[in-house]
Design a protein around this nucleic acid. Structure first.
Lengths: 190, 190
DNA sequence: GGAGTGATGTGACTTGGTAACATCACCATA
DNA sequence: TATGGTGATGTTACCAAGTCACATCACTCC
């Protein structure tokens, strides 16, 4: 596979995150990342579309999870029940061993507009994917869009809590709680 | 003011949009834009943070509109009524003479991920601003966030219709319609 | 053991973006 | 009218992101 060691993409990922944490995002060049991973700049760009993407890779996978989960829900389920099932499938992906990693990334992203931009688009794409999956079930607009946005909002709010230090609950549990809180809060909208 | 002609920023803006439409976004260099405006690359970057920003300038102004409008609403108004007032203030900014301009920009943005990213963050910032304005009124979470997101969603959906060709209604009217449709659809969420 | 294949390396290039310093127009004031 | 200050602009040089064409290596399969 690799010219030398295997797992080039993973090596690049860890080299990048380490350097970002050590010396900051824009003080780190792609050449440095590649060097630390024992590779070259060109190879970096073969694995990641750009310097930002190294922090957001694996998105297609998440949209796939949402799609599959929604498709697997019985037809009798309501839209929000389908969204709940999708969130369960999505959050199952972040086991607790990824929490520390996510926590390290948070301040890096928070400090750079270009990274927040990418994060914002990723969130929008997740919402779109979930909306599309609901359409497949026959849920019409604007219900599908609202249900999807509510679910994704629950996910992100829960994720914020999950990466905070000293949080015992799993991401799945936190997301379920947040989702039901948001559903309940819908009645307060007047 | 300007070394030669006045309105440097506006000249840069129009030069950029013209060139983007003529030959595409990434086939257009910042040097070209500056040349057409009778300026230099350095001056371009004095007026716009980067090449993308030329298509999104004036955002602070929009968040300001939201803040002012929400602050001006009587304390007796409900959260969604306050959001409605904010949308009226926001949409008043796009008179019909800006419609053609916005319509030209749409395909450019749609065709470039980096521009969609910026647009996505701008939308998130608008939502944040509206949420914060509601907090100022004493609206608690998660109600404020949900109300703001509902309003911004209405705005963007209406904007999409507004820029479509042959649409007689004003952006304000379209947004009001969309907003009330979304409010009504909340009851379909189960 | 040779051919094919996929991942990597090399080197050159374009362009976005920054920084230091010089220059020009304009305005106030003496 | 001269003088000096102020903002906006120009010049030049530079760095780093990202692309491309082409070479090279490891591995596998006949």
């Amino acid at each position: 596979m690799a010219r030398w060691e295997p797992n080039a993409q993973e090596r690049l990922l860890h080299a990048a995150v380490d350097l970002f944490v050590e010396q900051g995002y824009d003080a780190t060049t792609v050449n440095e990342i590649a060097d630390r991973a024992g590779l070259t700049k060109t190879t970096f760009f073969r694995h990641f579309r750009d310097k930002r993407e190294v922090l957001f890779a694996g998105q297609d996978l998440h949209t796939g999870l949402l799609n599959d989960a929604v498709a697997a829900v019985p037809a009798s389920a309501t839209p929000l029940e389908a969204v709940g099932a999708a969130l369960d499938a999505l959050t199952a992906f972040w086991a607790d061993d990824r929490r520390e990693f996510s926590a390290k990334l948070r301040p890096v992203i928070a400090g750079h507009t270009e990274l927040q931009e990418r994060a914002a688009l990723k969130r929008a794409k997740l919402t779109d994917a979930l909306t599309g999956a609901l359409h497949q079930r026959g849920v019409p607009e604007p219900t599908a869009g609202l249900a999807a946005e509510l679910g994704i909002r629950a996910f992100y709010q829960a994720f914020d809590q999950w990466v905070a230090p000293a949080n015992g609950q799993s991401l799945t549990a936190l997301t379920r709680d947040t989702f039901s809180t948001l559903r309940a809060a819908l009645t307060t909208l007047t």
